[in-house]
Write a protein that binds this DNA or RNA. Structure first.
Lengths: 159, 159
DNA sequence: CGATTTCCCTCGCTGAGCGAGATAATATCG
DNA sequence: CGATATTATCTCGCTCAGCGAGGGAAATCG
């Protein structure tokens, strides 16, 4: 509503950015679904692999319980998810020697390769978009995404 | 790899931005799934409503066929999706008088209200993140998101 | 007009995910 | 130490989203 700038009329309240962000997530979602389907996975399976790879990267042990909680599945659903991933050779179950109730999930190289096949094109694409921006602009994008992430996460946690 | 700036070591290739963008989409996905569940919908139903609201906003007529194609469902799945939405009162089926094979989907006020309930908090959240940025920075975010969107869409279309 | 195509629907089925409950290992308390 | 509670995972039976196959009605083509 400030007529002092030369952009469109919805530029100041960020509504258009909301719309864009939503469009991006929809497309990324469909992209993920198609990739998953081509590789004999369900969208949930792919999301699970991403979580597992994240955990592995951060040297964080991952269990069926933590995975299911992250994905919003109950224990029965989580068991069949892990069964599926194990059957496909993406993950192995190991008993935690410290607490033998727990099962530790270890990702196989196969899953790592799949993750790279999924993220490769995406990384190239985003990197290309990022390369169009000067460094201070990229920093702004980073700050923006961080803000959105923290906000949504917080909003999700208190419902 | 240009040591002339003062950011982190992964700032120039945009890898961190990829990571952030992925984290945002994961959180938004979970947010959507939880919202859908609270309102007796499936994630697909919510995505369908978003498509329908988009089409309505753009004054673009929407049919089961176009909706199913957008969501990657086959015709049987699309029928049961529309059945579900109709049963919940979110959408009405009307015959297209021009081409009586076609069914036009009209969204109910109920669906509009639900869409606002879903996007309200999200808009507030993103607007807050956007408000932290000056106008040229916001323009950069816009350009970045547009680039990602176009790239992913293009990549999706040629597989 | 008949043949083909387009759009949507019905039918039967598979399997992801849920609720309930079982099992086994650990923690806690008298 | 044994009894009980808690935690982590799995099993069983079920519901329903989505698929493949196929059918019927309306439009289009020759």
């Amino acid at each position: 509503m400030t007529p002092t700038d030369k952009s469109t009329d919805e530029s100041t309240d960020g509504l258009d950015v909301v719309h864009q962000l939503r469009a991006v997530t929809v497309e990324l979602d469909l992209f993920a679904a198609e990739f998953a389907h081509r590789n004999g996975l369900h969208p949930t399976d792919l999301r699970a692999l991403i979580c597992l790879l994240d955990a592995a990267r951060a040297r964080r042990p991952c269990t069926p319980g933590s995975l299911g909680a992250r994905l919003g599945l109950n224990s029965a659903g989580t068991t069949s998810l892990v069964d599926r991933l194990e059957r496909l050779g993406h993950v192995r179950r190991t008993r935690d020697p410290r607490d033998r109730r727990r099962v530790l999930l270890e990702v196989d190289e196969r899953a790592v390769a799949l993750g790279e096949a999924f993220f490769g094109p995406l990384i190239a694409q985003v990197a290309e978009a990022a390369a169009q921006l000067a460094e201070p602009e990229l920093a702004a994008v980073r700050r923006f995404l961080t803000g959105v992430l923290e906000g949504v996460t917080a909003r999700r946690e208190d419902g």
